[in-house]
Design a protein around this nucleic acid. Sequence first.
DNA 1: CTGAAAGCGCTTACAG
DNA 2: CTGAAAGCGCTTACAG
Lengths: 335, 335
Amino acid sequence: MNQKKRVTLLDVAKHAGVSRATASLIVRGSTNIAEKTRKKVLESMQELGYVYDRVAANMRSQNTSTVGLIITDIGNPFFSELLRGVHNSLEEAGYTVFLGTTFDSDSKQEQLLSRMLEHRVGGLILCPVSDSSHETIERIKKLDVPLILAVREIEDIELDYVGIDYVAGSHMAVNHLIQKGHRRIAFLGGSSGSSAWQKRKQGYCNALVHAGIEVDESLIISSTVTREGGVNAIQKALHLPNSPTAVFCFNDLVAHGVMLGLDDARKKPGKDIAVVGFDNVPEASLYNPPLTTVSSFARQIGSEAASLLHQRIIDRDRELQRIIIQPELVVRSSS
Amino acid sequence: MNQKKRVTLLDVAKHAGVSRATASLIVRGSTNIAEKTRKKVLESMQELGYVYDRVAANMRSQNTSTVGLIITDIGNPFFSELLRGVHNSLEEAGYTVFLGTTFDSDSKQEQLLSRMLEHRVGGLILCPVSDSSHETIERIKKLDVPLILAVREIEDIELDYVGIDYVAGSHMAVNHLIQKGHRRIAFLGGSSGSSAWQKRKQGYCNALVHAGIEVDESLIISSTVTREGGVNAIQKALHLPNSPTAVFCFNDLVAHGVMLGLDDARKKPGKDIAVVGFDNVPEASLYNPPLTTVSSFARQIGSEAASLLHQRIIDRDRELQRIIIQPELVVRSSS
DNA sequence: CTGAAAGCGCTTACAG
DNA sequence: CTGAAAGCGCTTACAG
């Protein structure tokens, strides 16, 4: 181990011939210091290779300059867009961010929450897993750290929340398919435990019922929220005795998988079967064919969540905020 | 502020009727403790809502359980794949990870490096920006924190590195276009400062020269590494007096932009003009048309980087490692 | 197992 | 500006 000993503020102070208190003031950017002294100290820091120990400082002053962000899966472009939105605002505001991914596993979520709390994060943005356990929920309730929920809500928990109106979005999507003359419309993919799924299902059912079409439960096939999930779901759908002429997918990632599956089955999306997604990820316009989808403004959700967190950290007692973004249908040639 | 006072280990110890030392041992999972005592202490923790302060513990024991990961842009699926690779291994190993994105800005990179060091990270994985300033380079050299370079190298710096053989990859891609009968092949996108760009250019030139085709500098058009960059680059290329019949793109993201630009110009990729990308992001197979590209195994780069970092943290004096992954050409219908 | 003490690298508060 | 002291929440080392 060729570890050099860490240079401390006291080392710097001695080297510059000032007191530790003065050095501390300078490192924190105080203005009431003679320019000459400040310069001398800054030079000593340079020379000694001093690195400010923010961890020690935060501990002493009971501050924190980190926040945690827990998402489901970075492989889903929806979350990478959300991450961009969050990250920009948060880094701007001077936070250093811990990132964790749950892959929709409750135990992973537990573990990440624990770790981040043990690291004394100043706040958390959580995109909860589909089936948060009772323990997790109880725990979150007791948390005295600012926490913002994004994308999915958790029942019985009153927290700041940013999401979109899934019911309205799904309604739009399915209604669009109905307008195009479809009657047998499948709802594919997504894990049935999540609020995001349930709301989409609700929008799906609403649209059907509204058009006088009976809901056929066999056309509702859940899956993991991955491309693979989409492939599996469409395969099941195609093997149905009375297979659908159109599919509404849980999200674009699943839609991507559905298209891959259709490809395998030698069916052309948009011709043999209509496909609609959800999210409008940046890639959707370049899918083959370009995907009709519902825009869920992931980046905006991210930046709203960041700003909610920031405000909640500043003022713990402010009123609870619920921000629901309105989705938009984007029609392309897959439907 | 409705902040409860933090419960400390001493509070727990008192509550359980043991000494602080004992409580400390238990919280760290020591085995030489009577089962009865351990149980009592764990119950007290539960009851009081104790949260282990890993920050204080790390400070005292001069440990660290965090690592930093600095990438260019999460919007690029290449990096989200890489992130997945890194993240899995690192979280597995018990680290909590700080994420930073530079958007290829040197000052952002500086800032992120500073912040992470101030947070006492135990190690760093850095995907350096295209033009790291001299200061940054000097600084990195002096760092006594384990640091792994990924994706791009920095001249004059001897560090563990994981990347792929860009020269070979580009050579494959361009050679493929030559085999298809193309003579006027453009190289579009990417920032000319980066080693990744220069190596791709080298592979591009090698392939041309090898086939007896003269390199036409006007066909080499750099850009930002974004979809927008790709759109701009193809527009410039199409306005050339003698426009290309095929384009080799810096990466799939740029290729995506190029295809969007071709769309605007009413040209069909794969028919009117051949397009080849680089990276083989998961979406590439679903582009319209499916994109011929060179696979750069982003996820593998990520997991290799994580494992290098882990090993470097364990043994500072081990030999430098350079891992160069061999790319593979994936032919689809865009060429 | 206990108990008392010292220390990680800072900030805070205060008398001068 | 200085100097000395106390403290953030832990771990470490040691005598008992």
